[in-house]
Amino acid sequence: MPLLKRRTKRDAEIPSGSMADIAFLLLIFFLLVTTINTEKGIYMQLPPKLDEQVEPPEIKDRNLLVILVNNNGDVLVEGEFMRVDAIRGEIVKHITNEGRDPGYSENPDKAVVSFKTERALSYERYVEVLDEIKGAYIDVRNQYANQLAGVDYPTYLARLDEDDVDEVKEKYPLKISLAEPDPG
C-alpha cells in the first residue's frame, strides 16, 4: 500500500521553466552560425544609353584623364605608357590639381577619369586597373575627410545624420567614365 500511495503523489510534468531558455540558446546559436554573405565589389554607374538627339557634353581636354588599356594589358595614361601601380598617383594628382598645372584638371568637380580597354583584354586586368582608379578616389576622399573631421571617409560617413550634407562627396564627386567601347 505505501508503494501505491507514493505513485499517486509523483509529479508527472516535464519541467517547462527552462524551455524558453533552451529555445533562446538555440536561436542565438543559429544566429551566430548563419553567415550572411554580403555582396562585395566595385560599384560603378554605367553611362546612360546614347541619345541621338542630345549631344554629349563637352569636356575640356585638360579635365579629362584618359586611361586606355590595350590587349596586352599595357596601360596608357594620356597616351603614355605607365605601370599599373603608378596610375593611382597620377589620378590623385589629376583630381586634386585645382587648376595649378595646366596639364591636369581645373577643379575636382570638373575632373573626369575616362577608362577604356581594348576588347581582347582579360577581365582580371580590367578589374585591376579599375581598382586603382577607385582606390585613387578613396585615397583623396579619405584625405579630405581627415582634414575636415580627422577621421577616414567611412567613419565620417557613418557619423553623418540623414539630412547632413556629405561635404567630402560634394568636394570630390566620383566621375569615372566608362567610355563607349570601340565597335568590333
Binding site: 566595385i42 560599384y43 554605367l46 553611362p47 576588347r119 583584354l121 582579360s122
Partner: peptide, 27 residues
C-alpha cells in the same frame, strides 16, 4: 577572370539598353 572585356562590353551594352545602370563588379 579570363573573360575578354569585349564580351563584358556586349553584356553592358544590353544593360544600358534596359537602363540598368547600377552595376557592381563582384570580387
Amino acid at each position: 577572370r579570363e573573360i575578354e572585356t569585349g564580351y563584358l562590353y556586349d553584356v553592358q551594352q544590353e544593360l544600358r539598353e534596359a537602363d540598368a545602370l547600377r552595376v557592381n563588379y563582384s570580387t
